[in-house]
Simulated assay, not measured.
Amino acid sequence: MIKNILFTMIFLCLQVISNAQLNFEIDTIATSQGKLVISFIGHGTLMMNFNNLVIHIDPVYRYADYSKLPKADIILITHHHGDHLDLKAIDTLKKENTKIICTELCYAQLKTGTIMKNGDIQKVYDINIEAVPAYNIVHKNNNGNPFHLKGQCNGYVITFGDKRIYIAGDTENIPEMKDLKNIDIAFLPMNLPYTMTPEMVADAVNMINPKVLYPYHYGNTNVKELIELLKDKKDCEIRIRKMN
């Protein structure tokens, strides 16, 4: 009897720990083809559920235990840096028919997947995916090279029904953002020295004009600065989630 009680207590404790690991913030977005559920895992890592499809974006074990998350139908990798490309996480999430979308430099490490270059468009399981530029202009390494070189990294515009979601990846407020049309939701990175300052994000928002902005990959950046900069932009809702 005592052994059974102890076993039950241990089991319940393990369940509590497991649930805590999966206790991500979640938003549900209505689309013309059903609900889009977004799980905010951390940093640049997201999970989306749409019409029984599971989409993982930049899955990294540092931010979640992927053995406890659903397998992927689609995995999107923005670029080759270790806080966005994690071979172990991808291997854990893969199943027989998982579609992996990545850059050339990611493919060189993965040895599998479909390469998308800036400007490419693919339809994957009836979801339209556009690869768009993501790079630095201002912020550079000590050797003078930008942290993210033009043409090497992707952002993605994903269409779910009537909603267009922009996942910017690691980028600054680059001129190509002016070409992004009808963006409903934008995920824009905001941390130094690798991506954008709050001022850069505000400029990007004014170029893109999303209906909803999620700052992500923001490290220790004070998100209140961004809110203050965009206080007069009434047509864009800023939603702060745990994505540092």
Rank of each mutant, 00 (worst) to 15 (best):
M1A: 09
N4P: 07
I5S: 08
F7G: 12
I10K: 10
C13G: 14
C13Y: 09
V16D: 11
I17P: 02
I26C: 11
T28K: 14
T28G: 10
I29N: 06
I29Y: 08
I29H: 05
A30F: 09
T31D: 07
S32I: 07
G34K: 04
K35N: 14
S39F: 13
F40V: 01
L46G: 05
N51T: 11
N51E: 10
V54Y: 03
I55F: 00
H56G: 00
D58Y: 01
P59N: 03
V60E: 04
Y63L: 01
A64P: 03
Y66S: 03
S67Q: 06
S67A: 06
S67I: 05
P70E: 07
K71Y: 07
D73S: 00
I75Q: 03
I77G: 01
T78Q: 13
H80G: 10
H81F: 11
G82M: 12
A89W: 08
A89I: 06
D91Q: 14
K95H: 07
E96P: 03
I100M: 05
I100A: 02
T103V: 07
T103N: 04
E104I: 12
E104S: 14
A108L: 11
I115L: 00
M116K: 03
N118D: 13
I127D: 04
A131S: 11
A131Q: 04
P133I: 07
N136P: 12
H139E: 13
G144R: 12
P146D: 11
L149A: 15
K150N: 15
Q152F: 13
I158K: 02
G161A: 07
Y166G: 10
E172A: 05
N173K: 14
E176T: 10
K178Y: 11
L180P: 02
K181E: 04
K181H: 02
I183T: 06
D184S: 14
D184Q: 12
I185L: 11
F187V: 09
Y194P: 09
Y194E: 15
T197C: 06
P198K: 01
V201E: 02
V205C: 06
I208A: 08
I208L: 10
N209Q: 15
P215H: 10
P215R: 11
Y216H: 05
H217N: 13
Y218C: 00
G219H: 11
N220V: 04
L229S: 09
D232Y: 00
D232A: 03
E237D: 08
E237M: 08
E237G: 03
I238K: 01
R241P: 10
